[in-house]
C-alpha cells in the first residue's frame, strides 16, 4: 500500500508540481511542434510514457550496482543513453515484426523515444536519489505531463491562430513562445522554484 502511495505521489508530483515541460523545459520543442498535430497526441504520449518508464526502470536497476553508481555524470550519460538506444531498437524491431507499420509510425516513434524529456527522466531520478518505485512513477508522470502540455499548447495555438488582433511582429512563433511562458508561470505557482536545474 505504501508503495502505491509513493508511486502515485511521485507521478502526481511530476504531472503538476514539477511538470517537466513547463517547469524544466524538457521536451518543449517536441511539445510545441507536436501540439499542431492533434491526431498524434495519444499515440505519441503513450510512446513517450512507455520509453520514459522503461528507461527509468532499467537505469535505476543498473544504478543499484555499486560499480555503476560510483561513476561520474559523463559515464552515466553513456550508460543511460545506451539503455535508451537498446530499448528503442528492440521496440522498433518488435513493432516491425508484429505490426508492419508505415513510415509515419517510424518517424513518430523515433521522435518519441529520442528526445530530451525521455532522456532526462533517468538523469533526474539519479540526481534526486529516487527509489525504484519513485523512478517508475517519474516515468509515468512525465508521459502524462507531456500530454497535458500538448492539450494546453494546442488550445493556445487555436486561439492564437483565430486571433486577428495580434500585432504582425508577434504573429506566429513569438506569440506561441509568450503563450507557453504564461503556461509556465501558471504551473510555477505550484512549485515556486524549479528543483531540477
Amino acid at each position: 500500500m505504501s508503495s502505491l502511495v509513493t508511486f502515485l505521489e511521485t507521478a502526481l508530483y511530476m504531472i503538476f508540481v514539477q511538470n517537466l515541460v513547463f517547469s524544466g523545459g524538457y521536451g518543449s520543442s517536441e511539445a510545441i511542434r507536436m501540439s499542431a498535430k492533434p491526431k498524434r497526441f495519444v499515440p505519441f504520449s503513450i510512446m513517450i510514457t512507455y520509453f520514459s518508464t522503461l528507461t527509468a526502470f532499467v537505469c535505476r536497476l543498473l544504478d543499484n550496482i555499486d560499480a555503476v553508481d560510483s561513476l561520474g555524470l559523463g559515464f552515466h550519460t553513456l550508460i543511460f543513453g545506451a539503455v535508451l538506444v537498446v530499448i528503442f531498437i528492440f521496440t522498433v524491431l518488435l513493432c516491425k515484426i508484429l505490426l508492419s507499420p508505415n513510415q509515419k509510425f517510424y518517424s513518430t516513434i523515433s521522435i518519441a523515444a529520442l528526445n530530451t524529456l525521455v532522456f532526462a527522466v533517468p538523469l533526474i531520478n539519479r540526481q534526486a536519489g529516487f527509489s525504484l518505485i519513485q523512478s517508475v512513477g517519474t516515468g509515468i508522470g512525465s508521459g502524462l505531463s507531456f500530454i497535458i502540455a500538448l492539450f494546453l499548447i494546442n488550445t493556445g495555438l487555436r486561439r492564437l491562430e483565430n486571433n486577428t488582433n495580434i500585432p504582425p511582429l508577434f504573429k506566429g512563433t513569438p506569440a506561441v513562445f509568450l503563450y507557453v511562458a504564461m503556461l509556465s508561470i501558471a504551473f510555477a505557482g505550484l512549485s515556486g522554484r524549479s528543483l531540477f536545474a
Binding site: 524538457y26 552515466h76 550519460t77 529520442l114 530530451t116 532526462a120 536545474a197
Partner: peptide
C-alpha cells in the same frame, strides 16, 4: 549546467 549538458545528446 547540471543535466542539460548530457541532454544535448537528445537535441532535436
Amino acid at each position: 549546467a547540471g543535466v542539460y549538458l548530457p541532454l544535448m545528446a537528445a537535441s532535436s
